[in-house]
């Protein structure tokens, strides 16, 4: 076989595997546009008249919007809280390193890897005592701590990439700490900040263990808890509606992940791999 044909063959294999890996998700999205009867027909039909009825039912005629709102607000506020704590920490660790900075960095990273199952019981008891059970506030605090290491690591490395001359020039011009940060550093950091926030969004949006054990009510529980209610069949005619609801629940994260592809590796490995 000549090398050109071999190349085409490898490309074909790559696309075949990529398609197979993606197919379950695509199939679910397709199913969400079928009628319930078509959704359970066997063998499955791939040519059918698409309907938006399931999406209407699953999204407007269900608690879905409330859970979506919960997830959106938990994600938003926990990321803001993590940034409020994380940006100053990243700043100090980037520009004022001490002997202990490397060690602190490793410790911060290690907290991200601790098993949540190890602390779920005390968290439940503490949350129960302080009225945080079934509240968004409780999850916001935990997710902020969960995303803090990611934010510190990524923002610190973005800060280290900034030319220090600019910061020094601003200081010589008499900029105070707040001006230095808001007028000089922050604008330069916006692309990095966007990428980091997208990663934080992915982790927060998909988290389930803490969410299901600490929230169960419509007032506080995020989408992952709602999606988990589809684990048992709810009658025969629920597959298409379920597909619509689950597809809708994962789309924001798929888009965030596709957009942040380049930063995904850095974020996932806490910068161990660039």
């Amino acid at each position: 076989m000549n090398s050109k044909a071999w190349g085409y063959f490898l490309t074909f294999i790559t696309f075949l595997i990529a398609f197979m890996m993606f197919f379950p998700i695509l199939y679910m999205a397709i199913t969400s546009f079928k009628t319930e009867q078509e959704a359970i027909s066997f063998p499955p039909s791939f040519i059918f008249e698409p309907t938006l009825q399931n999406w209407r039912d699953a999204i407007f005629d269900s608690p879905f919007p409330k859970y979506l709102l919960n997830t959106a607000s938990i994600t938003f506020f926990s990321t803001i809280l993590a940034l409020l704590f994380g940006l100053p920490t990243a700043y100090a660790m980037a520009y004022y390193p001490t002997k202990r900075t490397e060690g602190s960095m490793l410790w911060i990273m290690s907290t991200r890897m601790l098993p949540p199952a190890g602390v779920i019981v005390p968290l439940y008891v503490i949350f129960n005592n302080y009225g945080l059970l079934n509240t968004q506030t409780g999850l916001i605090i935990l997710y902020a701590a969960m995303n803090f290491p990611l934010i510190v690591w990524m923002m610190r490395s973005f800060m280290l990439e900034l030319p220090f001359d600019i910061i020094e020039a601003a200081r010589l011009d008499g900029a105070n700490l707040w001006q230095e940060f808001s007028k000089v550093i922050f604008p330069l950091l916006i692309p990095g900040l966007a990428a980091t926030s997208l990663l934080a969004l992915i982790f927060t949006w998909n988290e389930f263990f803490l969410a299901v054990n600490l929230t169960s009510t419509l007032e506080a529980a995020p989408l992952s808890v709602y999606v988990s209610t589809f684990k048992a069949a709810q009658g025969d005619l629920f597959i298409a509606k379920m597909s619509a609801a689950v597809t809708a629940s994962i789309i924001p994260v798929l888009i965030a992940g596709w957009v942040a592809q380049k930063q995904l590796v850095t974020g996932l490995t806490m910068g161990a791999v660039k």
Partner: peptide, 15 residues
């Protein structure tokens, strides 16, 4: 296409 399974919420993947 290949990275997409990793982005799917684990409970959604289970369902």
């Amino acid at each position: 296409l290949l990275i997409t399974p990793f982005l799917v919420m684990p409970v959604a993947a289970g369902v």
